[in-house]
Each structure stands twice: as structure tokens, then as C-alpha cells.
Computed example of a mutant assay.
Amino acid sequence: MNIFLISAGALSAIAAILHLACIYFGASWYRFLGAGEQMAQLAEQGSTKPAMITAGIFCVLSLWSLYAFSAAGIIVRLPFIKVVLLIITAIYLIRGVAGLFLMANPLGRTPEFWLWSSIICLVIGIVHLIGILQHWPYLTIK
């Protein structure tokens, strides 16, 4: 078992649960977590759009969590583990760096949202990367 991959899975799971909480608790959570005023207003108006988008993100983050747990040996081995983990790690790292550039033009969000979400994505990406590097020999394609 690899503590970094376990941590990566837990961090993705926490992010997934926070997205699920937005659906459950509504506009105030969309605002608090920085989803943007438009998403919060749509949620207040009863639109299903915010919930559908957020549910999609929840599903992706949950799957990413499962892949990290699988690589750590906690759950059954999932297919294409090396390739999928590399893609997940790259997405987290690219999102983290890209978000820093969006601070100047926040696209309906606050610069603080881009800063904090970028830091979070970079941390999760680095944790994934360390776990992958440590566990690389055990991630052979079977």
C-alpha cells in the first residue's frame, strides 16, 4: 500500500463529497465553494442545470478516487491503471497551473476562487505524482 495514493484517493473523494453537498445544500454552498453567482442563482431558481453539472463532476472525482485507491491496493485493480492515473495527475496539475492564469480574468468567479482551487488541484496533483513515482513498478499493465 502507498500512503500517497491513499491520500490522493481520499482527497479526490473529499472533493467529490463537497460537490455532492452543493447539490444537497443548494445556492449557499455553490456560492461558498466558488461555483459562481450564475450557478447559485440557477440553483435558487430551481434549475436542474447546476445539479446536473455538479453531479457529473461528482462522478468524475469519485472515479478518480477509485483509481487512486485501486493503485494503492485497497480495492480491486481497475483497467488501464497506469494510463488513467497519469491522465488524472496531468489534469490536476494542468488545472492547478491554468487556474493561476485565470486570476486576472476570473470568468464569473473570484480571483480568490482561482487561487485556492488552483492550490488545491496542485496539491492533489503532486500527491498523485509522488504516489505514482513511488509505486510505478507495481502498476504494470496486466
Score class of each variant (00 low, 15 high):
A8Q: 03
A8W: 07
G9Y: 09
G9R: 00
G9D: 00
L11M: 11
L11I: 06
S12Y: 05
I14P: 08
A15S: 10
I17D: 04
F25K: 13
F25P: 01
W29D: 12
Y30G: 05
F32P: 10
G34Q: 08
A35L: 04
G36I: 10
G36Q: 11
A40W: 02
Q41S: 05
E44G: 02
Q45C: 03
G46M: 03
S47H: 02
K49Y: 08
I53W: 01
A55F: 09
A55T: 03
G56S: 06
C59D: 09
S65K: 02
Y67F: 06
S70I: 09
G73M: 01
G73E: 00
I74E: 04
I75A: 04
P79A: 12
P79F: 06
F80Q: 15
F80N: 15
K82T: 15
K82Q: 13
V83F: 14
V83C: 13
V84T: 15
V84N: 08
L86S: 09
I88F: 01
A90D: 01
R95P: 12
V97N: 07
V97M: 13
L100A: 12
M103D: 10
A104M: 09
L107S: 07
G108I: 05
P111I: 03
E112C: 15
W114C: 13
W116D: 12
S118E: 12
I119F: 07
I120E: 14
L122Q: 03
L122A: 07
L122W: 01
G125D: 06
H128C: 10
I130Y: 01
G131W: 05
L133E: 03
Q134A: 14
W136T: 13
Y138N: 14
Y138H: 15
Y138T: 05
